[in-house]
Amino acid sequence: MERNDIESTNQRRGFLKTAALGVTAAACGSAICACGGKDKAESEKVVLLSPDGELVTIDSAHLRPVPKTVHVTNEEARQGIPGRKFVMVIDLAKCKNARKCVTACQKMHHTPEPTEWLSVRLMKDSPDAAPYWFPKTCFHCDNPPCVKVCPVDATFKRQDGIVLIDADRCIGCKFCMAACPYSTRVFNWSEPEHTPEVSCLEYSPETSTPSRVGTVEKCDFCPDMSRAGLLPDCVTACPNGVFYFGDQNEDVVTNGDETIGFNDIIRDRGGYRFAEELGTEPRVWYLPPRDRIFPVERGLDDLPEEIKNRYKDVIGG
């Protein structure tokens, strides 16, 4: 991936301990696909972080299109990134259902609005317990029930811990969806509507885009971003630093602002994995929602009615 892709500025993001090396042009989420080679008709203002740490607003027309696809062969995409063991830590004490992770994920993977690979759920563990917001990605289990049942090796576990789907191989039997206890996977029930630019993107299991009709897809932990030394979009999009992403081999995770030891935080904050008793060995850890920054109701503010209605069973009304 090229370095300076943006005329006016570029943005630096540290990635794990390789922060110094991992300086790359970003704004990938808002970058236009190179495929069509066309300029965006409407101009849109984009806020970026300059190298000096200042926020600058520029016109998106001034952004040079960046091809989002990191070109890896199917073989490489099945192997994973050597030496890595990706892990995610989600701090439930900081989540206020801002939903920036959801929209960033949708934008990054060009998934249409109602499709959420990453969803924020309202959890209430028992009638007397306090409700809390619960962002749910794919857990990239180490003992993945979905991978076990796939009849064609379309979904697979990589060396770096990530579970991916090869939508060019998937026959759409949906057995993995039956096997996944976390309702993580979604199916393309009809031909996905893509802009011409998206349609002509080269498909890779690492980008999971463009979607294919009659196949299964899900959160992929954005391995294309990791290859480029960047954090997944949900991590960078979160205004509250809820998501920490990192490498278990290096024992370090970061939310972009703060870099911490993985083992330390799991020990100190009582990290746990969801539904541990199922034996799926998730790679996503949760920090319990204690000493919360926001009251849970804040998450309902400014929510569109149709999203608010989702939580009716939990909040009542």
């Binding site: 009849p151 064609v152 379309a154 191989r169 998937c170 026959i171 759409g172 039997c173 949906k174 199916f187 393309n188 009709v213 009659g214 196949t215 299964v216």
Partner: peptide, 10 residues
């Protein structure tokens, strides 16, 4: 099965 055209993958 969502993809008839790929049954040979089996």
């Amino acid at each position: 099965v969502g993809r008839f055209d790929r049954l040979h993958h089996l």
